[in-house]
Design a protein around this nucleic acid. Structure first.
Lengths: 197, 197
DNA sequence: TTTATTATTGACAGACGAGTCAATCAACGG
DNA sequence: CCGTTGATTGACTCGTCTGTCAATAATAAA
């Protein structure tokens, strides 16, 4: 009855989707949403123009999808660090090392940070802006409060401190992808933003 | 001979140019270069489509112009602080207070920072990238080295520390314009990135 | 080998936006 | 009040990009 069995079709579908998403991640990160053409993405993915629309409804849908991936993957990373049996200071240190290391080695995380940046500066509908208000910040904010209680961290608004921490990381990710030969700084600099003097 | 005298024409010319540039600054900051339409800019400026091209050669030219303004104005600010007869630590503190204050109060500086961000993530020709490698960083890097010699600042690569400092500021400017009700943090957080523990 | 089903292609339509240009308006010197 | 000059306008052109669609290729079951 069926020419290819369902399982095989699923596998092809997943592969192609992944192929297109991976190419789109790099293109969007480099050029931003508006400047990225479908032709750029399909060329990078090595598929035809029509196939893009076979797997995705629109350019927007792909961007949303990548943005969601960016949020969830970074949330998982934070959760992992947060569940370690270590002090708040050490949690922050591990977070900084982990993220900066990922960006330094040009893993996908570097591109994901750029996607988030583009989403931020995109004049997007509220739907997208809502995605950027991820739970990471709340988890991290809690870590900061804990660190303030143990006396490891400086006084001040935990949310503001959290935002500044991630602002620095996003800025560094931007530099990394924009400037060739940019070397990521010592993660300890970020730790010291929060540490008590 | 001349219907309007030269002086008056010059004045009108300057006014219109300024009007268009000011509108373009906000539009570019909010939407980025590619997503900004001429119709957005002229609507914000309250002039006609044709007049835009009477005063500027292209959309690109306006963006370049704004980017150059962003660089020169920030360079002047840094130079001003650098010439004060104060310690390196205090120079950094003044810089942080000055910049964060400007962004907080939604002066043009906030929008200029966004322009620089867009230039960074724009996949622009080398010509533009070159503009973003401004002398600010060298001046600030010198301040950091001085502070390391006096023992006020932590050890480490001065350039990396400088980049991280400005990365944080650019990230914060991004948050400020993207998120309503975002309040800028205490500038002292930025100072502590550099200060010796 | 045939057939059914789905992946895959590229030509096409429709929309939209940058930049042009001929026409109009405004203002001042004469 | 007239004429000249330059500011100002908006309709138009032309290229490009997104999304559609009918046709083709591939593959595994029958």
């Amino acid at each position: 009855m069926s020419p290819r069995n369902e399982e095989q079709n699923m596998q092809i579908k997943d592969e192609r989707r992944e192929q297109i998403l991976s190419a789109a991640l790099k293109v969007f990160a480099k050029k931003g949403f508006a400047a990225s053409k479908i032709s750029d993405i399909v060329a990078a993915a090595g598929v035809s123009h029509g196939l893009f629309y076979h797997y995705f409804k629109s350019k927007e849908e792909v961007f949303y999808e990548l943005l969601k991936q960016a949020i969830t993957s970074s949330t998982q990373a934070i959760l992992m660090v947060n569940n370690m049996p270590i002090s708040p200071l050490e949690k922050v240190r591990q977070t900084a090392k982990y993220i900066l290391g990922g960006i330094e080695s040009f893993e996908d995380s570097a591109y994901y940070f750029l996607i988030v940046i583009h989403a931020f500066v995109m004049d997007a509908p509220a739907e997208i802006k809502a995605l950027t208000e991820n739970p990471n910040l709340q988890i991290f904010s809690k870590i900061v409060r804990d660190g303030q209680q143990t006396g490891e961290f400086r006084e001040g608004d935990p949310d503001g401190m959290t935002m500044t921490f991630f602002a620095a990381i996003q800025g560094l990710a931007m530099y990394k992808l924009a400037l060739q030969n940019f070397q990521m700084p010592d993660p300890e600099i970020l730790v010291d933003m929060l540490r008590k003097a």
